[in-house]
Design a protein around this nucleic acid. Structure first.
Length: 234
DNA sequence: TCATTAACTGTCG
DNA sequence: CGACAGTTAATGA
């Protein structure tokens, strides 16, 4: 990728952490140190346990982050899209990445080195404060996820995932705008591919969703939502 | 055309 | 609910 096209000042990702603080002139020196590159679909750009190489920001595309379990089964930790940040969990404390990351489609990634991140955090308080809020929010989400995994059955977890990707990636022409294999759906819901397929099939029979190849469209959001409603509070 | 891959189904423990 | 076997459809050397 030409470094030029990924210069932050012309970037369209208004929700990107870097972009949001670009009005501060102190940021200019740091942005220039950024490295951008392309990661093709299904390629891995962070290896679990590899030494930290700073933070990644998604300029365009979609990415999944995973943790590998004991039996070689993968657990998808997050699904992320352009504007999102990756690799922040091990940042600062751990010397190694705690997750692996794969591109779900051809993606452009921006990377800031550990040193550059440190400099930004020490010289731009607005950025540091925003990042702290971000961490707090992420912590809250992850605690919610623990509860989900503990109390929801497989069907409910799949439904929860469908509603989540529907909200996060949106629906185009009646189909959710992300391509996940059935295996990946299973990895996110913490189950096996076959189980995930069965649940999708029954949801389809109940005309709550529809499928076109890999793509999934949600037909009855309220019905699906009520099914997992009881897990949202107590 | 053959081989590979992914979605899907049936069944058993 | 997970694991294994087996079918089907699409894709591509």
């Amino acid at each position: 990728m030409k470094e030029e096209s990924a210069i932050c000042y012309t970037c369209i990702n208004e929700n990107c952490f870097i972009k949001k603080h670009l009005h501060l002139e102190q940021m200019r020196q740091f942005v220039l140190k950024k490295k951008s590159f392309v990661c093709k679909k299904s390629e891995q750009f962070i290896t679990e346990g590899a030494p930290l190489q700073g933070l990644y920001f998604i300029c365009s595309g979609k990415v999944k982050t995973v943790k590998t379990g004991i039996n070689g089964r993968e657990q998808i930790v997050r699904l992320t899209k352009n504007g999102d940040t990756i690799g922040f969990r091990g940042f600062g404390t751990s010397k190694r990445y705690l997750i692996g990351a794969y591109a779900l489609e051809d993606s452009v990634l921006c990377n800031f080195s550990n040193e550059t991140m440190l400099e930004i955090l020490q010289t731009v308080p607005e950025f540091t404060y925003a990042l702290m809020l971000f961490y707090a929010d992420e912590l809250n989400k992850s605690e919610n996820n623990i509860r989900k995994i503990a109390h929801m059955n497989v069907r409910e977890r799949v439904i929860d995932l469908l509603l989540y990707i529907h909200r996060k990636f949106g629906q185009v022409n009646g189909l959710i705008d992300i391509e996940l294999s059935r295996k990946e759906i299973a990895d996110f819901a913490g189950t096996t591919e076959e189980q995930a397929i069965r649940i999708l099939s029954s949801l389809k029979k109940e005309t709550l969703i529809k499928t076109v190849g890999k793509r999934i469209g949600i037909l009855a959001i309220p019905e699906l939502r009520t099914e997992i409603m009881e897990h949202k509070y107590f």
